[in-house]
Write a protein that binds this DNA or RNA. Structure first.
Lengths: 205, 205
DNA sequence: TTGACGTGAGAACGGTCGTTCTCTAGGTTA
DNA sequence: TAACCTAGAGAACGACCGTTCTCACGTCAA
């Protein structure tokens, strides 16, 4: 049991190293322009082990998207959780987008990029992209309903966030986050008025 | 002169046929998964002529993006021009997005997809993408300023439109256009209040 | 010590694809 | 009719890359 545990740990370590390299290379240069040999060179994990861990490149790509999804949403939630006021928590999403956009090496949304690159040919990738976007939208929806705001706001805020990600990626600028935050404030104010004025919050969006 | 004209016309026709095939295939299946031989098969233009018209695949891709840009913006402007009221013209943009999203074969924004697929490796593609997005934003900006609204609205509406395109592409649904239109109405109303309340329209955004 | 096993380095294989080349046919002019 | 230009069909070339195979080495059990 002790021995197999050591071996398992070695495999788990190699897996993390492979995914670290995959994330950096796939995100930075696109999936198709990165070869398995590049992954090997960057990770130090031999080709043999690589194929032992991920039977084909597709699997590595999917694992990359899945691990990044967990990390991305974790970092977002961590930032949002620094705020207590429900509406501030919504705005914190856009604040965090701004921080993310300003990071060195930012190249847009990994899932939007992956969808553009592989969507037409890879159902596995498409599934991960839709799952990620759905999870992000659900998270936003929770923030909106926690704030007692009408859930019709969720879709609007989601579009602002998506637009900001795309635009920040293409223009290599963090500015869209601020514009989206401004727009979000306006939409929140209007939603607040609606909620007070008659429509019941939490209704169908 | 008569003979060279006939030849030129044949070349121009082949060029259009090649671009027709390229547009359908590149947009529908992505650029990298479409070979030059696929273009030949779909267009009926021989490989020899193809390379005579476009010295490399890159050039064909760039020409595809350029021609599509002209057509896309032309169709948008055509729809907007059916409206006279300045604010209706702005909303007509989102209305048209909804029509576009609902077209059979819609697969999202060709430029966002191309950026995701080729952005990291092809400066030529990146240039066309940024040029297209800039042109679209400029067009929106003109509509906003024609309506006497503060130009800070342009960026916000632009983000809504981009978010709608991405989301419609990924979810294969036209719904985001309606959500974006709703949000745009709220933002327009707020902008109108700002313009009336003190801020000078056409100011820096 | 020995033998089976797992591993890493890297060669090798097979398929794809961008690009060029060959070969043949047709059409035009002297 | 002969020379010449052009074009099309498709073979061929060369590079790339995902995947597998070879081979030599080190490790561990008996």
């Amino acid at each position: 049991m002790d021995r197999t545990t050591a071996r398992d740990q070695a495999l788990a370590l190699a897996r993390e190293q492979a995914l670290d390299a995959a994330e950096e290379l796939f995100y930075g240069r696109g999936v198709q322009s990165v070869g398995m040999d590049d992954i090997r060179g960057a990770s130090g994990v031999s080709l043999k082990r690589l194929y032992q861990l991920f039977p084909a490149k597709d699997r590595l790509v999917e694992a990359y998207l899945e691990r990044r999804d967990l990390r991305w949403r974790g970092r977002l939630a961590e930032h949002v959780d620094r705020h207590e006021q429900p509406e501030e928590r919504i705005l914190a999403v856009f604040e965090w987008l701004g921080l993310w956009f300003a990071e060195p090496g930012f190249r847009g949304c990994a899932w939007i990029n992956a969808y553009g690159e592989l969507g037409p040919t890879s159902p596995g990738v498409t599934d991960r992209v839709t799952a990620h976007k759905e999870a992000f939208r659900d998270y936003l929806d929770g923030l909106v309903s926690d704030a007692g705001l009408p859930s019709v706001l969720t879709g609007r805020l989601f579009l602002l966030a998506e637009g900001a990600m795309v635009t920040a990626g293409i223009t290599r600028s963090a500015e869209p986050a601020g514009q989206a935050a401004d727009a979000a404030r306006v939409l929140l104010a209007a939603g607040r008025r609606d909620a007070a004025g008659g429509a019941r919050p939490g209704g169908q969006g």
